[in-house]
Amino acid sequence: MTSLRHRFRNVVTSEEELRTVVGQPPERSVAKVIQIIDEYARRFIAHAPFVFVASAGADGMVDVSPKGDPVGFVKVLDDRTLAIPDRLGNRRLDTLRNVLINPNIGLIFVIPGVTYTLRVSGRAIIVRDLELRETLAVNQKLPDHVLVVDVLHVLSHCPKCMVRSGLWQPDAWPDTSGLPSFAEMLVAHGKLAQTVEEMQAIIDSGNRERLY
């Protein structure tokens, strides 16, 4: 961090400096934070097929993991509790390992075509209760683990970032012709012995056979 600061001349180090430039938030931005999953938050979560989950390990390193499933896959157990199924993946278990050490997590729920998002912060535990896992089954396949979140803060996030990015506007989407494939990145970053074609076949097989 020290070496990074040496690269720049004007580094902000206090909230006072931030406020001098930006000013204070309007009252509505402060008042919109609630401590429960109310009717409006429930309706948003019920329509969301995608959520970003942020967690941090013992060393403070922050990880953000995307989770996606059929619409409404995150279950509202009550107005203070959410349940997020952990589906088959790469077995890194970054989020779950972090939660074992540091229970604090943050969530951003995303709905395609909707320009605002829902942010939730809280503390999580990992559970394997059969009854709960059964309610989260897809194609009769149960998740091995469920991330259960004790909700502390809930707030809606304004549309500006979505509007600026043109995320839901196909005409604004970038040209991806020069984008490396997932297989190319895996082979390059992992220095793997497989060819890109072989890795692509592995990925395609996993997408067909290991979704649940």
Score class of each variant (00 low, 15 high):
E27P: 08
E15Q: 14
S55Y: 02
S3I: 04
R28S: 11
S14F: 03
M61S: 14
R19T: 02
V53P: 10
Q24H: 12
I45S: 04
V74T: 10
V12P: 10
F73W: 00
T13V: 15
E16K: 12
G60Q: 06
S3Q: 02
K32Y: 09
K67E: 02
Q35C: 14
L18C: 09
S29W: 08
S14V: 01
K75N: 00
R9G: 11
I36R: 06
P70H: 12
I45H: 08
H47M: 05
G68Q: 09
N10I: 00
E15S: 12
V74A: 11
A46Q: 09
P25E: 10
V74E: 02
I37K: 01
R43L: 10
G60M: 10
L4D: 15
L77A: 07
A48M: 05
G60V: 03
I45W: 04
L77W: 04
V33C: 05
V11E: 06
F8M: 10
P70M: 13
F8Y: 15
S55C: 08
P49V: 06
N10T: 01
G68I: 12
V11I: 02
V21I: 11
D38F: 07
A31F: 05
A58K: 12
F73I: 05
P49A: 11
H47Q: 13
A58T: 14
F52K: 04
V64F: 09
G60D: 05
M61W: 05
P70V: 13
V74Y: 04
R42S: 14
A41G: 03
Q24G: 01
E27W: 02
V21D: 10
D69I: 09
V21Y: 15
E39P: 03
I36H: 06
I34H: 04
K32V: 06
G72R: 06
E39N: 08
F73C: 00
F50N: 03
R5E: 15
V51I: 09
I36A: 08
D69M: 03
A46F: 05
F8K: 14
R42Y: 08
R43F: 01
S55R: 03
R5W: 13
I36K: 05
R19N: 09
R28H: 15
D38P: 01
K67C: 02
R7S: 07
Y40K: 13
L4R: 12
E27A: 11
V33F: 08
E27K: 14
V11Q: 00
A31I: 03
V12W: 15
D69P: 00
V12E: 12
E17K: 15
P26T: 13
F52Q: 08
A46R: 11
S3K: 07
K75V: 08
V22D: 07
D69W: 00
S3L: 07
K32C: 11
V62C: 10
L18R: 13
F44C: 01
F73H: 00
P25S: 13
I36Y: 03
